[in-house]
Design a protein around this nucleic acid. Structure first.
Lengths: 159, 159
DNA sequence: TGACTAACGTTTGCTCCACGAACGTTAGCA
DNA sequence: TGCTAACGTTCGTGGAGCAAACGTTAGTCA
Protein backbone atom coordinates (compact mmCIF):
# COMPACT_ATOMS: atom_id res chain seq x y z
CA UNK A 1 0.00 0.00 0.00
CA UNK A 2 3.03 2.15 0.27
CA UNK A 3 6.09 2.78 -1.85
CA UNK A 4 9.67 2.60 -0.70
CA UNK A 5 10.51 5.72 1.25
CA UNK A 6 13.70 7.61 0.91
CA UNK A 7 15.37 8.66 4.11
CA UNK A 8 13.40 11.74 5.17
CA UNK A 9 10.48 10.84 7.44
CA UNK A 10 7.57 12.82 6.06
CA UNK A 11 6.03 15.41 8.32
CA UNK A 12 2.62 13.81 8.26
CA UNK A 13 3.77 10.39 9.40
CA UNK A 14 3.30 11.12 13.06
CA UNK A 15 -0.24 12.46 12.71
CA UNK A 16 -2.89 10.30 14.33
CA UNK A 17 -5.07 10.55 11.26
CA UNK A 18 -2.23 9.20 9.13
CA UNK A 19 -1.32 6.42 11.55
CA UNK A 20 -4.96 5.50 11.71
CA UNK A 21 -5.33 5.39 7.96
CA UNK A 22 -2.20 3.33 7.45
CA UNK A 23 -3.04 0.87 10.18
CA UNK A 24 -6.59 0.56 8.92
CA UNK A 25 -5.12 -0.12 5.50
CA UNK A 26 -3.14 -3.02 6.89
CA UNK A 27 -6.18 -4.32 8.73
CA UNK A 28 -8.26 -4.01 5.61
CA UNK A 29 -5.64 -5.88 3.62
CA UNK A 30 -5.37 -8.64 6.20
CA UNK A 31 -9.11 -9.16 6.39
CA UNK A 32 -9.48 -8.88 2.63
CA UNK A 33 -6.84 -11.54 2.09
CA UNK A 34 -8.43 -13.76 4.70
CA UNK A 35 -11.81 -13.44 3.06
CA UNK A 36 -10.66 -13.76 -0.52
CA UNK A 37 -8.90 -17.00 0.40
CA UNK A 38 -12.43 -18.36 0.81
CA UNK A 39 -13.73 -16.50 -2.21
CA UNK A 40 -15.55 -13.75 -0.36
CA UNK A 41 -15.29 -10.04 0.34
CA UNK A 42 -16.25 -7.75 3.16
CA UNK A 43 -19.74 -7.04 1.93
CA UNK A 44 -20.39 -10.75 1.60
CA UNK A 45 -19.49 -11.34 5.20
CA UNK A 46 -21.53 -8.43 6.45
CA UNK A 47 -24.58 -9.56 4.55
CA UNK A 48 -24.29 -13.19 5.61
CA UNK A 49 -23.73 -12.21 9.23
CA UNK A 50 -26.66 -9.82 9.20
CA UNK A 51 -28.85 -12.51 7.71
CA UNK A 52 -27.93 -14.97 10.44
CA UNK A 53 -28.45 -12.37 13.16
CA UNK A 54 -31.66 -10.81 11.91
CA UNK A 55 -33.17 -13.59 9.83
CA UNK A 56 -34.57 -13.27 6.30
CA UNK A 57 -35.43 -9.73 5.33
CA UNK A 58 -35.85 -7.39 2.40
CA UNK A 59 -32.82 -5.85 0.77
CA UNK A 60 -33.65 -2.42 2.11
CA UNK A 61 -33.91 -3.73 5.67
CA UNK A 62 -30.68 -5.65 5.27
CA UNK A 63 -29.02 -2.53 3.99
CA UNK A 64 -30.10 -0.57 7.02
CA UNK A 65 -28.97 -3.33 9.39
CA UNK A 66 -25.64 -3.96 7.77
CA UNK A 67 -24.72 -0.46 6.72
CA UNK A 68 -24.43 -1.55 3.11
CA UNK A 69 -25.69 1.00 0.62
CA UNK A 70 -28.72 -0.16 -1.36
CA UNK A 71 -26.81 0.35 -4.59
CA UNK A 72 -24.14 -2.06 -3.43
CA UNK A 73 -26.63 -4.41 -1.85
CA UNK A 74 -27.93 -5.38 -5.27
CA UNK A 75 -24.54 -6.61 -6.45
CA UNK A 76 -23.79 -8.26 -3.12
CA UNK A 77 -27.01 -10.26 -3.15
CA UNK A 78 -26.35 -11.15 -6.78
CA UNK A 79 -22.90 -12.47 -5.92
CA UNK A 80 -24.09 -14.55 -3.01
CA UNK A 81 -27.14 -15.82 -4.87
CA UNK A 82 -24.94 -16.90 -7.77
CA UNK A 83 -22.91 -18.95 -5.33
CA UNK A 84 -26.02 -20.44 -3.76
CA UNK A 85 -25.21 -18.91 -0.39
CA UNK A 86 -28.35 -16.85 -0.31
CA UNK A 87 -31.82 -17.00 -1.80
CA UNK A 88 -33.78 -14.08 -3.23
CA UNK A 89 -37.51 -14.66 -3.31
CA UNK A 90 -40.32 -12.21 -3.99
CA UNK A 91 -42.31 -11.28 -0.92
CA UNK A 92 -45.88 -12.55 -1.50
CA UNK A 93 -47.20 -9.89 0.86
CA UNK A 94 -45.46 -6.98 -0.83
CA UNK A 95 -44.42 -7.32 -4.41
CA UNK A 96 -41.93 -4.48 -4.13
CA UNK A 97 -39.80 -6.51 -1.81
CA UNK A 98 -37.32 -9.32 -2.28
CA UNK A 99 -36.95 -11.49 0.75
CA UNK A 100 -33.35 -12.62 1.07
CA UNK A 101 -32.56 -15.66 3.18
CA UNK A 102 -29.56 -17.73 4.13
CA UNK A 103 -29.05 -21.20 2.63
CA UNK A 104 -27.23 -24.02 4.46
CA UNK A 105 -24.25 -23.43 2.20
CA UNK A 106 -24.33 -19.77 3.15
CA UNK A 107 -24.33 -20.68 6.80
CA UNK A 108 -21.31 -22.90 6.31
CA UNK A 109 -19.51 -20.14 4.46
CA UNK A 110 -20.32 -17.78 7.30
CA UNK A 111 -18.69 -20.21 9.73
CA UNK A 112 -15.54 -20.19 7.64
CA UNK A 113 -15.52 -16.42 7.41
CA UNK A 114 -16.05 -16.05 11.14
CA UNK A 115 -13.03 -18.24 11.75
CA UNK A 116 -10.90 -16.33 9.26
CA UNK A 117 -11.94 -13.04 10.74
CA UNK A 118 -10.94 -14.08 14.23
CA UNK A 119 -7.54 -15.16 12.95
CA UNK A 120 -7.11 -11.80 11.27
CA UNK A 121 -7.85 -9.91 14.46
CA UNK A 122 -5.12 -11.86 16.13
CA UNK A 123 -2.68 -11.20 13.36
CA UNK A 124 -3.58 -7.54 13.36
CA UNK A 125 -2.98 -7.13 17.08
CA UNK A 126 0.00 -9.49 17.19
CA UNK A 127 2.50 -6.97 18.59
CA UNK A 128 0.23 -5.91 21.44
CA UNK A 129 -0.10 -7.48 24.87
CA UNK A 130 -3.59 -8.46 26.05
CA UNK A 131 -3.75 -5.29 28.17
CA UNK A 132 -2.70 -3.17 25.24
CA UNK A 133 -5.27 -4.82 23.02
CA UNK A 134 -7.95 -3.92 25.50
CA UNK A 135 -6.69 -0.34 25.71
CA UNK A 136 -6.62 -0.13 21.97
CA UNK A 137 -10.17 -1.28 21.39
CA UNK A 138 -11.38 0.89 24.26
CA UNK A 139 -9.77 3.99 22.78
CA UNK A 140 -11.12 3.21 19.33
CA UNK A 141 -14.59 2.65 20.72
CA UNK A 142 -14.44 5.93 22.54
CA UNK A 143 -13.48 7.76 19.37
CA UNK A 144 -16.08 5.97 17.32
CA UNK A 145 -18.91 6.63 19.74
CA UNK A 146 -17.96 10.29 19.78
CA UNK A 147 -17.86 10.66 16.02
CA UNK A 148 -21.03 8.69 15.50
CA UNK A 149 -23.11 11.13 17.50
CA UNK A 150 -25.89 12.39 15.29
CA UNK A 151 -24.66 10.47 12.30
CA UNK A 152 -25.64 6.98 13.24
CA UNK A 153 -29.36 6.85 13.91
CA UNK A 154 -30.49 10.34 14.80
CA UNK A 155 -34.22 9.64 14.51
CA UNK A 156 -35.89 8.18 17.56
CA UNK A 157 -38.92 10.41 17.06
CA UNK A 158 -40.68 8.27 14.51
CA UNK A 159 -44.29 9.39 14.94
CA UNK B 1 -19.98 6.91 5.73
CA UNK B 2 -22.54 4.82 7.50
CA UNK B 3 -26.28 4.36 7.25
CA UNK B 4 -28.73 4.49 10.09
CA UNK B 5 -28.61 1.26 12.04
CA UNK B 6 -31.62 -0.63 13.21
CA UNK B 7 -31.52 -1.93 16.73
CA UNK B 8 -29.41 -5.09 16.50
CA UNK B 9 -25.75 -4.38 17.08
CA UNK B 10 -23.96 -6.29 14.35
CA UNK B 11 -21.57 -9.01 15.37
CA UNK B 12 -18.59 -7.43 13.70
CA UNK B 13 -18.89 -4.09 15.42
CA UNK B 14 -16.60 -5.00 18.28
CA UNK B 15 -13.80 -6.32 16.09
CA UNK B 16 -10.65 -4.23 16.20
CA UNK B 17 -10.36 -4.32 12.43
CA UNK B 18 -13.84 -2.88 12.14
CA UNK B 19 -13.35 -0.23 14.78
CA UNK B 20 -10.13 0.70 13.06
CA UNK B 21 -11.73 0.97 9.67
CA UNK B 22 -14.65 3.02 10.91
CA UNK B 23 -12.50 5.38 12.90
CA UNK B 24 -10.11 5.76 10.00
CA UNK B 25 -13.11 6.54 7.85
CA UNK B 26 -14.08 9.36 10.16
CA UNK B 27 -10.51 10.63 10.20
CA UNK B 28 -10.38 10.48 6.44
CA UNK B 29 -13.62 12.36 6.16
CA UNK B 30 -12.53 15.02 8.63
CA UNK B 31 -9.23 15.60 6.90
CA UNK B 32 -10.83 15.48 3.48
CA UNK B 33 -13.38 18.10 4.48
CA UNK B 34 -10.67 20.25 6.02
CA UNK B 35 -8.61 20.08 2.87
CA UNK B 36 -11.42 20.52 0.40
CA UNK B 37 -12.51 23.65 2.25
CA UNK B 38 -9.28 25.14 0.91
CA UNK B 39 -9.65 23.45 -2.47
CA UNK B 40 -7.12 20.70 -1.94
CA UNK B 41 -6.92 16.96 -1.49
CA UNK B 42 -4.65 14.54 0.30
CA UNK B 43 -2.22 14.13 -2.56
CA UNK B 44 -1.90 17.88 -2.87
CA UNK B 45 -0.89 18.24 0.74
CA UNK B 46 1.55 15.38 0.60
CA UNK B 47 3.25 16.77 -2.47
CA UNK B 48 3.46 20.32 -1.12
CA UNK B 49 4.80 19.12 2.21
CA UNK B 50 7.37 16.88 0.55
CA UNK B 51 8.50 19.77 -1.60
CA UNK B 52 9.02 21.99 1.39
CA UNK B 53 10.85 19.30 3.30
CA UNK B 54 13.04 17.98 0.52
CA UNK B 55 13.29 20.95 -1.79
CA UNK B 56 12.76 20.94 -5.56
CA UNK B 57 13.09 17.51 -7.10
CA UNK B 58 12.05 15.37 -10.05
CA UNK B 59 8.63 13.79 -10.06
CA UNK B 60 10.09 10.32 -9.61
CA UNK B 61 12.02 11.40 -6.53
CA UNK B 62 8.99 13.16 -5.13
CA UNK B 63 6.97 10.05 -5.71
CA UNK B 64 9.42 7.97 -3.74
CA UNK B 65 9.54 10.50 -0.92
CA UNK B 66 5.83 11.05 -0.64
CA UNK B 67 4.56 7.56 -1.39
CA UNK B 68 2.54 8.86 -4.31
CA UNK B 69 2.46 6.60 -7.34
CA UNK B 70 4.13 8.07 -10.42
CA UNK B 71 0.91 7.75 -12.36
CA UNK B 72 -0.90 9.85 -9.79
CA UNK B 73 2.02 12.21 -9.44
CA UNK B 74 1.43 13.46 -12.96
CA UNK B 75 -2.12 14.52 -12.23
CA UNK B 76 -1.18 15.92 -8.84
CA UNK B 77 1.55 18.11 -10.29
CA UNK B 78 -0.83 19.16 -13.03
CA UNK B 79 -3.44 20.21 -10.49
CA UNK B 80 -1.01 22.18 -8.39
CA UNK B 81 0.72 23.73 -11.40
CA UNK B 82 -2.67 24.84 -12.76
CA UNK B 83 -3.26 26.65 -9.50
CA UNK B 84 0.20 28.22 -9.56
CA UNK B 85 1.20 26.44 -6.34
CA UNK B 86 4.01 24.55 -7.97
CA UNK B 87 6.29 24.96 -10.96
CA UNK B 88 7.33 22.27 -13.36
CA UNK B 89 10.56 23.06 -15.20
CA UNK B 90 12.71 20.81 -17.38
CA UNK B 91 15.96 19.77 -15.76
CA UNK B 92 18.75 21.28 -17.90
CA UNK B 93 21.11 18.56 -16.70
CA UNK B 94 18.80 15.66 -17.59
CA UNK B 95 16.13 16.20 -20.14
CA UNK B 96 14.16 13.20 -18.91
CA UNK B 97 13.43 14.98 -15.68
CA UNK B 98 11.00 17.66 -14.65
CA UNK B 99 12.12 19.64 -11.66
CA UNK B 100 9.11 20.53 -9.54
CA UNK B 101 9.42 23.38 -7.09
CA UNK B 102 7.25 25.25 -4.66
CA UNK B 103 6.01 28.76 -5.45
CA UNK B 104 5.30 31.37 -2.77
CA UNK B 105 1.58 30.76 -3.28
CA UNK B 106 2.21 27.05 -2.80
CA UNK B 107 4.00 27.76 0.44
CA UNK B 108 1.09 29.85 1.67
CA UNK B 109 -1.34 27.11 0.73
CA UNK B 110 0.81 24.63 2.61
CA UNK B 111 0.58 26.83 5.71
CA UNK B 112 -3.18 26.79 5.45
CA UNK B 113 -3.26 23.04 4.99
CA UNK B 114 -0.92 22.50 7.93
CA UNK B 115 -3.23 24.54 10.10
CA UNK B 116 -6.30 22.69 8.88
CA UNK B 117 -4.63 19.37 9.45
CA UNK B 118 -3.69 20.24 13.02
CA UNK B 119 -7.27 21.26 13.70
CA UNK B 120 -8.48 17.97 12.30
CA UNK B 121 -6.17 15.99 14.56
CA UNK B 122 -7.65 17.81 17.49
CA UNK B 123 -11.17 17.22 16.35
CA UNK B 124 -10.40 13.57 15.72
CA UNK B 125 -8.98 13.00 19.19
CA UNK B 126 -11.46 15.31 20.92
CA UNK B 127 -12.89 12.72 23.32
CA UNK B 128 -9.46 11.58 24.54
CA UNK B 129 -7.38 13.02 27.34
CA UNK B 130 -3.78 14.01 26.61
CA UNK B 131 -2.55 10.76 28.18
CA UNK B 132 -5.00 8.74 26.14
CA UNK B 133 -3.94 10.52 22.98
CA UNK B 134 -0.36 9.56 23.68
CA UNK B 135 -1.35 5.95 24.37
CA UNK B 136 -3.36 5.89 21.21
CA UNK B 137 -0.61 7.10 18.91
CA UNK B 138 1.87 4.83 20.65
CA UNK B 139 -0.30 1.79 20.08
CA UNK B 140 -0.93 2.72 16.48
CA UNK B 141 2.78 3.26 15.89
CA UNK B 142 3.55 -0.13 17.40
CA UNK B 143 1.06 -1.82 15.11
CA UNK B 144 2.26 0.10 12.10
CA UNK B 145 5.93 -0.66 12.68
CA UNK B 146 5.07 -4.31 13.06
CA UNK B 147 3.04 -4.53 9.88
CA UNK B 148 5.52 -2.50 7.88
CA UNK B 149 8.32 -4.98 8.42
CA UNK B 150 9.61 -6.04 5.03
CA UNK B 151 7.06 -3.96 3.15
CA UNK B 152 8.34 -0.47 3.64
CA UNK B 153 11.90 -0.15 2.34
CA UNK B 154 13.49 -3.57 2.36
CA UNK B 155 16.46 -2.56 0.23
CA UNK B 156 19.41 -1.09 2.07
CA UNK B 157 21.83 -2.99 -0.15
CA UNK B 158 21.91 -0.47 -2.98
CA UNK B 159 25.31 -1.37 -4.46
C1' DT C 1 -62.48 5.18 -6.77
C1' DG C 2 -58.69 8.04 -7.94
C1' DA C 3 -54.59 10.59 -6.96
C1' DC C 4 -50.71 11.48 -4.32
C1' DT C 5 -46.89 9.97 -1.58
C1' DA C 6 -43.48 6.99 -0.18
C1' DA C 7 -40.80 2.81 -0.16
C1' DC C 8 -38.34 -0.64 -2.83
C1' DG C 9 -34.97 -2.49 -6.17
C1' DT C 10 -32.00 -1.48 -9.88
C1' DT C 11 -28.82 0.87 -12.93
C1' DT C 12 -25.49 4.19 -13.75
C1' DG C 13 -22.06 7.02 -12.41
C1' DC C 14 -19.18 9.59 -9.34
C1' DT C 15 -15.22 10.37 -5.62
C1' DC C 16 -10.79 9.21 -3.42
C1' DC C 17 -6.85 6.50 -2.93
C1' DA C 18 -3.77 2.99 -4.66
C1' DC C 19 -1.71 0.20 -8.42
C1' DG C 20 -0.20 -1.93 -12.99
C1' DA C 21 0.93 -1.98 -17.97
C1' DA C 22 2.57 0.17 -21.81
C1' DC C 23 5.12 3.54 -24.51
C1' DG C 24 8.12 7.25 -26.19
C1' DT C 25 12.02 9.87 -24.64
C1' DT C 26 16.47 10.40 -22.74
C1' DA C 27 21.01 9.11 -20.02
C1' DG C 28 24.55 6.34 -19.07
C1' DC C 29 27.44 2.53 -19.65
C1' DA C 30 30.01 -1.25 -21.98
C1' DT D 1 27.25 1.85 -31.28
C1' DG D 2 24.08 -0.46 -29.01
C1' DC D 3 21.75 -2.02 -24.71
C1' DT D 4 19.74 -1.03 -20.45
C1' DA D 5 17.46 1.60 -17.25
C1' DA D 6 15.18 5.63 -15.56
C1' DC D 7 11.73 9.20 -16.38
C1' DG D 8 7.21 11.13 -17.47
C1' DT D 9 2.84 10.22 -19.39
C1' DT D 10 -1.47 8.02 -20.62
C1' DC D 11 -4.83 4.68 -19.86
C1' DG D 12 -7.07 1.48 -17.21
C1' DT D 13 -8.12 -1.41 -12.87
C1' DG D 14 -9.90 -2.03 -8.23
C1' DG D 15 -12.42 -1.45 -3.74
C1' DA D 16 -15.27 1.20 -0.73
C1' DG D 17 -18.68 4.57 -0.21
C1' DC D 18 -22.25 7.40 -1.88
C1' DA D 19 -25.89 10.16 -4.96
C1' DA D 20 -29.27 10.61 -8.63
C1' DA D 21 -32.66 8.85 -11.34
C1' DC D 22 -36.28 5.68 -12.72
C1' DG D 23 -39.92 2.13 -12.94
C1' DT D 24 -42.65 -0.60 -9.92
C1' DT D 25 -45.63 -1.27 -6.12
C1' DA D 26 -48.19 -0.13 -1.46
C1' DG D 27 -50.46 2.66 1.51
C1' DT D 28 -53.19 6.68 2.48
C1' DC D 29 -56.42 10.30 1.95
C1' DA D 30 -59.91 13.11 -0.35
Amino acid sequence: MENPREKTPARWEGMPSWLLGQTAGHAHRLVGEGFSAVGARGYHYRLLATLEDSGPASQATLGRCSGIHLSDMVATVNDLADGGLVERAPDPADRRRNIVSLTPAGRRQLRRLDRRLAECQDELLAPLSPEERQQFTDLLSKLLVHHNRGTDAPEERWS
